[in-house]
């Protein structure tokens, strides 16, 4: 039982880490605490449903279309909502993201109806059984893809010039501007990346479960994940996501399914009380 719970905590936690990474990229770049991150994951899942089930595109093409649509959505949100509000209070922008998530949810229900949809893809199904441990291939694929994405974006930020300039912009806007960096373009890119990461998370969540607007609640686990991991920390987001997945699965299996929210947010409270900058955050700048 322990190994089984550890496995599913790891698999789901990897997806949460991916969505949380998207959140952290946006937060670092634009200081926006994006309550619509869960809704962006839902959008990714519905983009995939549209491309695969409705338009019937071949799978690789459908994935490309879904990624492009997610990126475009991030760019549009930045251009129409975030950039015009830059310089306004954090509260105003938070309210905008909350409103955005409600609007996204309503629009999806109008377009696709309240009924959940099933996303079927050619990804391998079935299960590896090792002793008592059952490892669904879909969970393995989801976890592996999440880690590949996280590693790829980590390398992108660490080793490329664009990544360097994005880090620089996130560090200090006016210095980046003076150095000739198109700050709006960098921020737009950050929103595109944040939305794409959420979208990939949504794609897997939708496939493991059902594509419905309720997926938003899972996507929103990115919020406790980044706070636990450390708001300003990219590795913190990943570790936070993993921890949230573990806490969720362990509390639900060993205490009761009703206890997961208490366990996750109880742990969050402990972090806020004793280490408000998060596990891997920076004590100086990362205090919540």
């Amino acid at each position: 039982m322990f190994a089984q719970v550890l496995f599913s905590g790891f698999a789901l936690g990897s997806i949460y880490g991916l969505v949380a990474l998207g959140f952290a990229v946006v937060f670092k770049a634009t200081q926006v605490f994006n309550f619509a991150q869960g809704a962006l994951a839902v959008c990714g899942a519905y983009f995939a449903v549209t491309a695969i089930s409705i338009l019937g595109l071949p799978f690789p093409l459908a994935i490309l279309a879904m990624l492009a649509a997610s990126a475009l959505l991030g760019v549009i949100i930045h251009m129409t909502l975030i950039q015009p509000l830059s310089g306004r209070s954090m509260l105003a922008i938070i309210m905008v993201t909350i409103a955005l998530s409600i609007v996204i949810r309503a629009v999806i229900e109008i377009i696709y109806g309240p009924q959940g949809r099933v996303l079927s893809t050619p990804l391998p199904t079935g299960v590896f059984i090792v002793g008592d441990l059952r490892m669904p291939k879909l969970h393995l694929t989801a976890a592996a893809t999440s880690w590949v994405c996280m590693a790829a974006f980590g390398a992108f930020f660490r080793f490329t010039r664009v990544g360097l300039l994005m880090r620089a912009t996130a560090d200090r806007h006016e210095a980046a501007m003076a150095a000739g960096v198109n700050v709006n373009l960098m921020n737009r890119l950050a929103w595109a990346i944040g939305s794409v990461l959420a979208g990939i998370g949504g794609l897997f969540l939708g496939q493991l479960q059902i594509v419905s607007t309720e997926l938003e609640t899972i996507g929103l686990l990115a919020l406790p994940a980044v706070v636990i991991g450390g708001l300003q920390s990219i590795p913190g987001a990943i570790v936070g996501g993993l921890l949230v997945g573990m806490i969720e699965q362990f509390s639900s299996s060993y205490i009761s399914p009703k206890s997961t929210d208490i366990a996750i947010y109880g742990f969050l409270l402990l972090i806020l009380l004793f280490r408000p900058w998060g596990l891997l955050g920076d004590q100086e700048t990362g205090r919540v």
């Binding site: 880090r167 560090d171 200090r172 006016e174 210095a175 003076a178």
Partner: peptide, 8 residues
């Protein structure tokens, strides 16, 4: 007042 990138 100096504008360096502290994380870099």
């Amino acid at each position: 007042n100096l504008a360096l990138f502290p994380g870099l």
